[in-house]
């Protein structure tokens, strides 16, 4: 088979470790992420606390490890919702009659007129806080972006020769849509999605910061980052490491996403 670049392997490895940490965090750390130690607040990285401690003396490393689950859920869950709903709505708008198209597109215009975070806040206000609702809120807030791009793709694909060729072959309408139009329309959006995972993760953190996402004291990278801002001059490790975790996740998703896309196009990795 084709040679896979080492960078792609590394990114895939990071993602695998992240998923493992989300599922079984106790494999990575013996320390409890919630144990408060008022005698050891804001300690720099040491042998005992690998990445230091926070303002309540909790171990930053174990909080990062235990925070993986909520953070990944926010990033991937929200984008999965946005992609699925946005994809279907976009294809429907691209293929439907003028009424369907106008309905979907004007709704998405309304959505796009508000900042994502504001839209997410609306959903939270209606549905209530908590990690699950935060995922939902950010997902819904992202739908208009995806619907728009997918609709544009669908419009060009429905006029493409290969869709006509499939029709000429005698494929039924729904089969043409699900086999040829939908996968090809969503493909370019997947690139948008790999970047979206990162922004969704950060948006989720903002919600947590406002006390509307993951409720404290549950660990979550974004909320850690937010609280760390107040201590950045005294305890760099508190903010830098959760930030690095977010960055690493986003880079890994982007690299792996790109490799998968190239492979799906039959190009080299």
């Amino acid at each position: 088979m084709r040679r896979i670049r080492p960078g792609v392997w590394l990114a895939a490895l990071v993602l695998a470790l992240l998923v493992l940490a989300a599922a079984l965090p106790y494999l990575f750390t013996g320390q409890d992420p919630l144990t408060v130690d008022s005698g050891a607040t804001l300690r720099p990285p040491s042998a005992e606390h690998l990445l230091g401690t926070d303002e309540n003396g909790r171990d930053v490393f174990s909080r990062i490890v235990y925070g993986t689950r909520a953070s990944l859920l926010l990033g991937f869950g929200a984008i999965a919702i946005a992609l699925a709903a946005g994809g279907l709505l976009g294809v429907a708008a691209g293929l439907g009659n003028r009424f369907v198209e106008n309905l979907i597109m004007r709704l998405s215009d309304v959505g796009l007129a508000f900042p994502e975070l504001l839209l997410a806040l609306v959903v939270i206000t209606v549905a209530g806080g908590g990690t699950t609702n935060a995922v939902l809120a950010i997902g819904v807030a992202n739908i208009p972006n995806y619907a728009r791009v997918v609709r544009a793709q669908t419009l060009s694909i429905r006029r493409s020769t290969y869709v006509e060729a499939a029709r000429a072959l005698g494929l039924s309408g729904p089969r043409v849509v699900f086999r040829h139009v939908l996968p090809n329309a969503v493909k370019p959006v997947l690139i948008l999605a790999t970047i979206g995972v990162g922004t969704a993760l950060v948006a989720g953190s903002a919600l947590s910061f406002l006390g509307l996402g993951t409720p404290p004291p549950e660990p979550e990278w974004g909320s850690m980052l937010s609280t760390a801002r107040a201590f950045i001059s005294r305890a760099w490790w508190y903010g830098v490491f959760p930030g690095a975790a977010i960055t690493l996740t986003v880079i890994s998703v982007t690299v792996v996403g790109r490799a998968l896309r190239l492979r799906s196009e039959g190009r080299t990795w």
Partner: peptide, 17 residues
């Protein structure tokens, strides 16, 4: 099935995936 077509640009007539 009884009447099929071959296009000028074959590449465009295949699903790129």
């Amino acid at each position: 099935r009884d009447i099929q077509v071959v296009y000028q640009d074959p590449l465009a007539s295949f699903d790129p995936r």
